[in-house]
Amino acid sequence: MGIEHNSDGSSKAKPAGSSLAATSLKIVGALLFAAFVLILVPMLINGAERWDLYYTLTSVALLSIASAGVWLTFYIGRINIGQAAYALIGGYVSAILVVDYGVSFWWTLPLAGLTCAVISVFVGLPILRLRGVYFAMVTLVFTEVAKMAALALPITHGASGIANIPLPGALEIFGLTLIPDFNTLENSRYAFYILSVTLMLLCYFMMYRLVNSRMGRLCYSLQQNEELASSIGVNITYLRLVAYAISSFLGGIGGAIFAAISQSVYPSSFAVADSINFMLNCFLGGLGYVLGPMLGTFVLYFGWDWLFQTGKYQLLIFSSVLIALMLILPNGLLSIRLWGKKS
């Protein structure tokens, strides 16, 4: 943490130059993007009266939060096909607390994330020693385990799931209403949109800071060569666990809000296909870029939605485009920028 502050301070202190200009450019860009998605997009949607887009964009925002987690595990050199398990756990934790115990949704949201993080520490401790396909396969199996456990355990109500989750209530601190009761709003979709997009922006801001901090560089060293990193004194076990826990935390948050929006959660809400999609989002956007998963989720989700009009050829066209993209840009959509620079 200390070093993180230092690097921040030094970049501000440096009067000369390009790094300062680049930093301020990035800040301006991020603020513009935030203003765009929080103010301009709702205005456009209201103008065009396409209310359904709120739901679509909310889904994109939530899925990209979960994908950001997967991306972080890619960053430490692990292929994570188990994010759907944590999304499912997060959804169930929030749903059970809200429905069976009457806890406020706003308390269950961080609890869902923390539960996932704690579980991921216990799961991760043994399996993070695995690499490559081995890790990928175990996490894939873990997705199935989570789904089957949801089917078998009594607390999750089995296959019928939990289908009567109320909308989030008001969030009040010392009598001050921070977030109004979603039931009193005339458009709860808009409220969910703002909530999800805010969390998405926050998540990617933190992710960017994390990757560019001291810990981010250490994580990158894990991706390059774990033995070498370990030999220089990097605590690789600890770093892997922390990265995996953060990843699972994000998965749990995404799943919990998803359960709140659809007001239901079933064992099949998040399955192996979702785990694979989270991974594809990261690949498609580009594994080398923090914003890769966000772009990948957006393109994948909207591409799939947009192709709906092609009817039975939807999957055929979708997969052909994916294959073509892989052939042209095997390092992700964002790599097109670097590619342009070189030539």
């Binding site: 990928a136 594994l287 055929l316 979708f318």
Partner: peptide, 28 residues
């Protein structure tokens, strides 16, 4: 793809896309 890609995991996206593609062809 193996020749051009920076990380060999990229083949997993390709394999998944091929799985979707074969699914679609079989369905049609």
């Amino acid at each position: 793809v193996i020749r051009k890609s920076h990380r060999e995991e990229s083949t997993m996206l390709l394999a998944a896309a091929i799985a979707f593609f074969l699914d679609a062809v079989i369905l049609l």
